[in-house]
């Protein structure tokens, strides 16, 4: 078994599917000879040819639109958008077509495509390269939004996304692309979508988070464990549709909920989780639900980006406050 990083796992999953499903193609800017600006498709064009791994002209609306066209005709396109900051031209295609085509045609045409993009801050990147706007896509009916937070989940969830019969926006937390390595068996086994993953079991507080924020959250939880606070950490993994059952069960046990995400707070995915827990788990709560999030401001350029993002101390303090309710 190989020890791989999150980005290696993304490459492995795509290679597996290219190898085993002739309908799979990769499209995107600089994904071919260059292997992607983050190297996610490194070596794939050489191995599978220019038809299967295609450099496209520079136009994201086009990339999403032709992916939809291909998907409706039986292909399984995996489209790469270079950075989430450049995904917005795809919004028209995704909301008006990818998410609707099955419903509009009563199932006659479907759209099994994946739109991959690196997202998130903390890597000292230029303007427009650090935002987290997963909530935009989570708000679109008919589209799944998936975010892995470890090499193993990147591998398994991406395989599942490619095989899924409906469109999936697969967002990769680039800050942890190469943070750590994990043993991942390249066996083509997918992990289930639409479920959360419990990373730590605990009894005092439920923490729900995803992507790179898993790491700050775990650090905070480890720190608090020394003071005897027992936290349950849930990796949301599929951002839409949300697996509420796992979250509600956990809150039933702990009675406290803290949500951590790096996206802006208002109308963020945390707001949806809080709403559901308020609707269905209100009487299990010992105190108010708390959120540690990015602020409702334009993501600052990198000299101040760490002050924008949730940090270990912000999370520790939020959990501490929840414990005192």
């Amino acid at each position: 078994m190989a020890e791989v990083t999150l980005i290696d796992a993304v490459t492995m999953a795509m290679a597996w599917e290219l190898e085993h499903d002739p309908m799979v193609v990769i499209l995107g800017e600089d994904v071919g000879v260059n292997g992607g600006v983050f190297r996610a498709t490194a070596g794939l064009q050489k191995r599978f040819g220019v038809d299967r791994v295609q450099d496209t002209p520079l136009a994201e609306g086009m990339i999403a639109g032709i992916s939809i066209g291909m998907a409706t005709q039986g292909m399984r396109p995996i489209a790469e958008i270079q950075f989430m900051g450049f995904i917005y031209p795809t919004v028209d295609q995704m909301i008006n077509h990818a998410g609707r085509i099955r419903n509009r045609t009563r199932g006659r045409l479907t759209c099994p495509m994946v739109l991959r993009a690196p997202f998130g801050g903390g890597i000292h990147a230029p303007e427009h390269h650090s935002e987290s706007t997963e909530a935009l896509f989570a708000h679109m009916p008919g589209i799944r939004v998936v975010i892995p937070s470890s090499p193993a989940r990147a591998y398994g969830l991406l395989l599942a996304a490619i095989r899924d019969p409906d469109p999936v926006v697969f967002l990769e937390p680039k800050r942890i692309y190469r943070l750590n390595k994990q043993e991942v068996e390249d066996n083509g086994k997918a992990l289930p979508l639409d479920v959360c993953y419990i990373l730590r079991e605990g009894t005092d507080v439920t923490l729900v988070t995803w992507g790179a924020m898993i790491f700050e959250t775990i650090k905070a939880v480890d720190q608090l464990a020394r003071n005897g606070v027992s936290c349950e950490v849930i990796d949301l993994a599929t951002i839409s549709p949300i697996d509420y059952e796992t979250i509600l069960e956990s809150v039933e046990k702990t009675g406290r909920l803290v949500i951590v995400h790096e996206a802006a707070r208002s109308c963020g995915v945390g707001a949806e989780i809080a709403a559901i827990v308020a609707e269905k788990g209100m009487y299990d709560l010992k105190g108010p639900i708390r959120r540690v999030t990015g602020y409702d401001v334009v993501m600052p350029l990198f000299r101040r980006e760490m002050d924008y993002l949730p940090s270990v101390s912000k999370i520790v303090d939020a959990i501490g406050a929840a414990m005192h309710d």
Binding site: G122, I123, Y295, V297, M306, D307, S311, S313, K314
Partner: peptide, 22 residues
């Protein structure tokens, strides 16, 4: 007004957030 609270939060934690990257 709703941003006042966030602004104060940011000031309270300024420079305690893992430092400047680079």
């Amino acid at each position: 007004e709703f941003l006042e609270e966030q602004r104060e939060h940011a000031i309270r934690y300024a420079d305690k957030n893992g430092g400047e990257h680079g």
